[in-house]
Structures are given as structure tokens and as C-alpha cells.
């Protein structure tokens, strides 16, 4: 990729981005999955990583949180280089992670799932605030975590990292396999969080959903960022994006 294009994707030099990914390479065993990912996320932004299956979006999130250990390059979060840190230290910097498939624990009740992550930031939500945001959960606290519906599991997965106090969220396909009415509810939740100043990195296949919540979209192909589209100029770029995503 040409250098000028890459630097144009970065934010203005005076504002230190909350997350700055530079030259990120990542590997699953022998296979080289990320080839120099570069992108920035500023405080209070919602950005998406768009791209086809296997482009490296999920891998990028796993590399940021440290679940994927075999990674090189630079990931600076809040001014701290995290590339050499174990996942637990990265999480403690205030990053909340909702994995693909949501990661709800079957052997834990809903309440235990909710209370599992330790506090990682000063702005932890109380249980009452959580139930205001996700009223369904209050009724189901004693249920087995995986007995919840897919939508409720997604809410629980988001709720537990909010309760831990993360202000920076990595959400991996939060709408996957959910009914439109539930997707609408999640979209509303993300907009509320954005109003409250949360920073969110969203991996999505669902372009309609992504475009309803995000400020900027990074297009990922074969393990690198190939384009960036601002929400403001989305309409003009629809054709280009559809070609990238093959829709």
C-alpha cells in the first residue's frame, strides 16, 4: 500500500489517538494472518472494521486484547505499548472484549457471568445501571448463562465488561445470528454508550448495522487496512464499499 494513503488514515498529529495500531503482523501457527495492519481510534469514536470473511478482522481484535500471543508490530493504548503484555495486563488498562460467539460461560449463572470480570477502571457501572440498560437480564439472574437467548447472551456479554469499568470496547460481530428487532436494541445501546463517551471498535459483517452506529469504517482485506471511509461521506462511497465487501 502507498505511504501517503496510509498516513492519511491516521488522525491529526496533535491528538494522541486512544488506540494506535502500527505495522501489526499476527500468526496462527505457521499461517501469517495480519500483514501490517494500521489504524487509529480516537477517544469517544465508534469505528468499524469491515471486510469479507477471513480478512483478519477477528484476528485484529484478538491481537489487540492479547488472546493471540504471536503478534508483532506496535499496539499503543492510551500511550502504553501493549504488544509484549499478556492479555490480563492489557485488559487491566481498561479494554473490554466481547468475543465472537459471546463467550458466555455455561457453568456460571447469569449473575456469576455478570460479576466475573474484575474491575479494570474507575467508571464501573453499578448493577442498577446495567439493568436500566439491559432490563431483560434482571429477570434471569439465576438462570444458567447459556440458557439465555442469543440476544440476551449478547447483552450479557456487553453488560459484564461495562460493569468492569472498561471505557474502550472491542465488539466482535455483536449482531451475528440475531433477529432484526434485537439488532435494533443493540444498535440503540451502542448509540447510548457513544453519547456517554465510550470508545468502540466494532467488527461487523452486517453493513446496515455498522453504518447506523459508526463514525468511521476501516476496510480490511487480506490482513491489512486498504481504505477508510468517513460516515459523513458514506453515501458517495457506497458503490466502492459494496465492491470491497462483495455485496
Amino acid at each position: 500500500m502507498a505511504e501517503p494513503a496510509a498516513s492519511a488514515m491516521r488522525s491529526a498529529p496533535d491528538a494522541e489517538p486512544m488506540l494506535a495500531v502500527r505495522g501489526l503482523n499476527a500468526f496462527y501457527g505457521e499461517s501469517h494472518v495480519l500483514h501490517g495492519m494500521e489504524f487509529d481510534v480516537s477517544r469517544g469514536e465508534v469505528i468499524t472494521l469491515l471486510g469479507r470473511n477471513g480478512a483478519g478482522k477477528t484476528t485484529t481484535l484478538r491481537a489487540i486484547i492479547g488472546q493471540l500471543r504471536n503478534r508483532r508490530g506496535s499496539i499503543r493504548f492510551g500511550g502504553v505499548e501493549t504488544i509484549g503484555l499478556p492479555a490480563r495486563r492489557i485488559a487491566r488498562l481498561g479494554i473490554g472484549y466481547v468475543p465472537e460467539e459471546r463467550g458466555i460461560f455455561a457453568s456460571l449463572s447469569v449473575l456469576e457471568n455478570l460479576h466475573l470480570p474484575p474491575a479494570v477502571g474507575p467508571s464501573a457501572m453499578s448493577d442498577d445501571e446495567i439493568f436500566e440498560l439491559f432490563p431483560n437480564l434482571r429477570e434471569r439472574l439465576d438462570s444458567q448463562g447459556t440458557k439465555l437467548s442469543g440476544g440476551e447472551q449478547q447483552m450479557l456479554a456487553i453488560a459484564r465488561i461495562l460493569r468492569a469499568g472498561s471505557r474502550f470496547l472491542l465488539l466482535d460481530e455483536p449482531t451475528e445470528g440475531l433477529a432484526p428487532v434485537i439488532i435494533e436494541q443493540i444498535s440503540r445501546t451502542i448509540r447510548i454508550l457513544k453519547e456517554r463517551g465510550y470508545t468502540i471498535v466494532l467488527v461487523e459483517q452486517n453493513f446496515r448495522f455498522a453504518s447506523s452506529v459508526a463514525d468511521r469504517h476501516y476496510v480490511v482485506e487480506q490482513g491489512r487496512v486498504v481504505d477508510m471511509v468517513d460516515a459523513g461521506v458514506l453515501e458517495q462511497n457506497l458503490g466502492k464499499l459494496q465492491k470491497y465487501l462483495g455485496i
Binding site: 492479547g66 488472546q67 490480563r88 485488559a91 457453568s107 456460571l108 470480570p117 465488561i161 468492569a164
Partner: peptide, 24 residues
């Protein structure tokens, strides 16, 4: 107990428990 819940979660998915900031 809470430590018990952490233990059960770590039996199921240690990587994710670690990604919540717990010293597995």
C-alpha cells in the same frame, strides 16, 4: 463463591478469563 465461579469459568475458557484481566 466468587473464586469458585472464576475457577469454573477458567475451566471452560481460560483464554477469555485471562482477557478479562484475571491472572489465570
Amino acid at each position: 463463591t466468587r473464586i469458585g465461579a472464576t475457577l469454573r469459568a477458567a475451566q471452560e475458557n481460560p483464554g477469555l478469563v485471562e482477557a478479562f484481566g484475571i491472572h489465570v
